[in-house]
Nucleic acid binder design. Structure first.
Length: 607
RNA sequence: CGGGGCGUAGCUCAGCUUGGCUAGAGCGCCAGCUUUGGGAGCUGGAAGUCGCAGGUUCGAAUCCUGUCGCCCCGACCA
């Protein structure tokens, strides 16, 4: 392609409404243009890069044994009603009515395709002998993001590879999951992307295992905790704190001063109380009243007090799992009034009338500031063991929480988000916090959709079972955004050769100079014939402008033909990620480019 | 959905507080001359319903009301 014939609107100045590097640079390099919030046009260079990433995804999915199909983006909303996801997606699902022969047809634009594919499979699979298999597609998805942001990192329309595995057994699911996991590692490596697979929360609905593939980047929206020593990494929802159960003291030292009640009118938050009483949040205990719904109680909500150190964040998934509850929500005002005898904001463990569970860190606090279970008051100098005790295992079991252990024991649990500095759950390292961009997700779905959409098979004993599913997504656009976000310098993007819009840019410094231009044209032709992906910068611009543009777009290899070099019989080869250029004799340039490009490509493919 | 910011030429912005001459600059664009290895110089030129609607006024980019759009922080995000 000749630069003059393509459409590459580079910008010299920073666009005013872009802040993160990927957004800024993709606009400036002429890769994308915004149509509206959350929707971008891919211009020639951006689209080429996107298609290269897509091709790598496709190759590796095929290699992993997945089979490509293509499903409609428009879907009957009835499918989402059957799975209940019309509610769980809520406003994110884009749906609308159309008229057909006077009838109203209710449509949705696919935010993902579990419903469509499970419906399809339910009609055509009936025996274990047809299983297992994995299907995938690469297609535009639509989600009405409440707040699109960061350029193409978070948009309402995006290109996604979504794969679905169908298995007759958990063993088959595990195999399909591992095949996808391995394929993802190859995909991101081949794309030249630095990535970390992290353990992820599989959410309240189904599934028991899930990994997210994260690109560590300061602008990532996800927070992950990792310990580089042991290789442990998990998203903040999932990360285990590495704390052990702490012994609950039975009493306090004899000379410890008794607890004291202080007036704290209108101070209901940790922040307010710490300010008023001049204490630090980590000297306080947060008492959160939850309502747990447990099937054994016939769905009747059971209040429970959860105690967390003041500077920590409660993790509802961990609490729910500890209690073995179906669902969990913060208690309403009425319940709090009933349990604490006080309005919201003054709950504490002393004298509370519901079961109490505590985080591992709580007994480590010698004394603490807590709510007084009375309006406008807090207690200071409160000691566990003397002033209050957590519930015993037996007491918790009695209200039907599924907790193992000796009935008389009082124990502690991991109930909070892990934080940087916490000990790693593996090895002796500590956890550090990094931000990440989620580029992929593998997920053992289980039978959630096969049950609601009646996708079943019969086994060799003619017993009917729901098909066991897995789902596996990759945000193709985010591969590009992740690359630009992590591979750029002050001058522009630094593409890995595998997804660069062009592998080589041929730059004749003066298109008016016939010998220079003739050689450039010859290189262009010969490189094209050799299968090299080459762009000829045939614009009649000054050298400086061409160099700036080449650096901005970030072509991996630049081949410069200048009048002076030509007099010495040399041209110049420069890799975008190397500081120095290499001079090569005119006659050797094509061979050198072919060899070096092939080497770079091979290095990325070999992984 | 809460909080903040911004809409003036293709891009980046000034002008608005205190209403008043023909609405400006730099970059880009067009023509010409010079220049030719890191976004050149000179000369000339084209280009804006000042986001939109309404109001106040003799007069509105400027003041008021409404509305639309975009960006950022937060909430939300299988």
């Amino acid at each position: 392609m000749r630069w003059s014939q393509s459409f590459i609107p580079t910008l010299k100045e920073e666009p005013s409404d872009a802040e993160v590097p990927s957004h800024r640079l993709m606009l400036r390099a002429g890769l994308i243009r915004q149509l509206m919030a959350g929707a971008y046009t891919y211009l020639p260079l951006g689209y080429r890069a996107l298609r290269k990433a897509e091709a790598i995804v496709r190759e590796e999915m095929d290699r992993a044994g997945a089979v490509e199909i293509h499903m409609p983006a428009i879907q009957p909303i009835e499918l989402f009603e059957r799975t209940g996801r019309i509610h769980s997606f809520g406003n994110v699902l884009i749906h609308f009515d159309v008229a057909r022969r006077g009838q109203k047809v209710r449509l949705a634009l696919g935010p993902t395709h579990e419903e469509v594919i499970t419906d399809l499979i339910s009609r055509h699979v009936s025996s274990y002998r047809q299983l297992p298999f994995t299907l995938y597609q690469i297609q535009t998805k639509f989600r009405n993001e409440e707040r699109p942001r960061f350029g193409i990192l978070r948009t309402s329309e995006f290109l996604m590879k979504d794969a679905y595995s169908f298995s007759a057994s958990v063993e088959q699911l595990d195999q399909a999951y591992q095949a996808m996991y391995d394929a993802y590692c190859r995909i991101f490596s081949r794309c030249g992307l630095e990535y970390v697979p992290v353990e992820a929360e599989s959410g309240p609905i189904g599934g028991d295992a899930s990994h997210e593939f994260m690109v560590p980047a300061p602008n990532g929206e996800d927070r992950i905790l990792r310990d580089t020593k042991s290789g442990y990494a998990a998203n903040i929802e999932r990360a285990v704190t590495g704390r052990r159960p702490s012994p609950v003291p039975a009493e306090a030292p004899a000379d410890a001063p008794p607890m004291k009640s202080l007036d704290t009118p209108g101070t209901t938050s940790i922040e307010q109380v710490s300010k008023l009483l001049k204490c630090k949040p980590h000297q306080m205990i947060k008492t959160l009243i939850y309502l747990a719904i447990n099937e054994f109680r016939g769905g009747r909500p059971q209040p429970v007090a959860v105690l967390i150190r003041g500077d920590h964040e409660a993790n509802e998934n961990k609490i729910r799992r500890v209690l073995g509850a179906e669902s969990l929500e913060l208690a309403d005002e009425e319940t709090i009034q009933k349990v604490t005898g006080a309005p919201v904001g003054f709950a504490g463990p002393v004298g509370i009338r519901c079961p109490v569970i505590v985080d591992h860190d709580i007994p480590l606090m010698e004394k603490a500031v807590v709510g007084a279970n009375a309006a406008d008051a807090h207690l200071v100098g409160v000691r566990i063991g003397r002033d209050w005790l957590p519930s015993t295992v037996g007491e918790l079991q009695a209200v039907s929480f599924k907790i193992e252990g000796n009935a008389d024991d009082r124990t502690t649990f991991d109930l909070r988000n892990a934080a940087p500095g916490d000990p790693s759950p593996k090895g002796d390292g500590t956890l550090e916090l990094v931000h990440g961009i989620e580029v992929g997700h593998v997920f053992k779905l289980g039978a959630k959709y096969s049950v609601s959409l009646a996708a079943t098979f019969v086994d060799e004993k003619e017993q009917s079972h729901p098909i066991i599913m897995g789902c596996y997504g990759i945000g193709v656009n985010r591969i590009l955004a992740g690359l630009v976000e992590t591979r750029h310098d002050a001058d522009g993007i630094i593409w890995p050769i595998s997804v660069a819009p062009y592998e080589v840019v041929v730059v004749p410094l003066n298109v008016q100079d016939p010998p220079v231009m003739e050689l450039a044209e010859r290189y262009y032709r010969e490189l094209q014939d050799a299968g090299v992906d080459v762009l000829l910068d045939d614009r009649d611009l000054r050298a400086g402008a061409k160099f700036k543009d080449a650096d901005l777009v970030g072509f991996p290899l630049r081949l410069v033909i200048g009048g002076k070099g030509l007099q010495d019989g040399v041209v110049e080869l420069k890799w975008r990620d190397q500081p120095e250029a290499e001079k090569v004799p005119v006659a050797d340039a094509v061979a050198a480019v072919r060899r070096q490009v092939a080497e770079r490509q091979a290095a990325l493919k070999a992984v």
